[in-house]
Amino acid sequence: MARWRGLGVTAVAALSFVAVKILPWALGFSGGKYLYQTVAGSPDPQTLTTAQVSEQIQSQGSQIFMAIQQEFPDDYDAVVEKITAVARLGNVEQVRNTSRMAVASLRQKYASLLSSSPDGNAAEALRAQLAMLNHVMARETAITCNNYLRNGPDALSMPDQDFLTDMDKIGATLFHAFGAAKKSGLAAASASDEDWSLLADAFINAGGTPTEMNAIANVSPEFEGLCPAVAKLYTSALSLQGEPGRHVKTTLLYEIARN
């Protein structure tokens, strides 16, 4: 059986078109939803303080913001200050947009650290992607799931709380991976041709087929089994051990986070 030629490019593309569509929406969800309650419930938004906004975020259990506070406390304080300034204007949509843009900016700022992330943190972030995809496959039709891969949560008629929790975790695990990478001291390394070859072998051993490989590589929306194929790709990447496995996971995650 022929190897998946160009797997380094096609696998990265597959994960990127899935996850990049998710992240901006998910990363904005926390600030937009949680701070909506602060703005809407305040008789005088102009009196809001950064302490009140931070307290509201913490009380609502935003995994993304808690991860930022834990890993990058100075950045957390700066983001809360930006959100507070907009919240004082009483415009909920501006609060949501500011939250999304501020957190997305941090995601791009720290993306380059991922090549030094420990394997355990990279695996946790990739598992969050897989959990979301499995959830969509279980709840939606194959057509809707394929559209989700191409267009992100906009393909879902009304994401429920479980979906929102999954997306919150996607962002949080990425920020924990950023923080772990900053502290790890591991050498930065991208996946090599040999590493991608190991991923191709793992995909085949997991029951993957050339048809599925082509569907992932070409982002084929008409292929009914696209979501299971992408889930198999994630699972195969997670099965790789040692430095090759770390290289594959961190390279895939970098392609998610840098966009």
Results as ranks from 00 to 15, higher is better:
Gly179Ala: 04
Glu212Cys: 09
Lys183Leu: 10
Ala187Ser: 11
Glu212Asn: 10
Ser192Ala: 08
Trp196Pro: 06
Ile204Phe: 15
Phe203Lys: 01
Ala181Trp: 02
Asp195Gln: 02
Ile204Val: 14
Ser197Lys: 09
Gly185Asp: 09
Gly208Lys: 12
Glu194Tyr: 02
Ser190Lys: 13
Met213Glu: 15
Ser197Phe: 08
Ala206Gly: 09
Ser184Ala: 05
Leu186Val: 00
Ala202Gln: 06
Ser190Leu: 06
Ala191Gln: 03
Gly185Thr: 05
Asp201Ala: 03
Gly208Phe: 12
Glu212His: 11
Ser197Trp: 04
Gly207Asp: 07
Trp196Thr: 01
Ile204Cys: 08
Gly185Pro: 11
Ala187Leu: 09
Leu186Arg: 12
Ala181Met: 03
Thr209Arg: 15
Glu194Gly: 05
Leu186Tyr: 13
Lys182Cys: 01
Thr211Ser: 15
Ala189Cys: 04
Ile204Ala: 15
Gly185Ser: 08
Lys182Ile: 00
Ala202Cys: 07
Ala191His: 09
Lys183His: 12
Ala189Asp: 08
Leu198Val: 00
Ala191Ile: 02
Gly179Asp: 05
Leu199Pro: 03
Ala180Arg: 02
Trp196Ser: 00
Glu194Leu: 01
Glu212Phe: 13
Ser192Gly: 05
Asp195Thr: 02
Thr209Tyr: 14
Ala189Val: 04
Glu194Phe: 01
Ala189Glu: 12
Glu212Trp: 14
Ala187Asn: 11
Glu212Met: 15
Ala181Ile: 01
Leu186Gly: 04
Asp195Cys: 02
Phe203Gly: 03
Ser184His: 12
Lys183Cys: 00
Gly208Ala: 03
Gly207Thr: 05
Ala191Tyr: 10
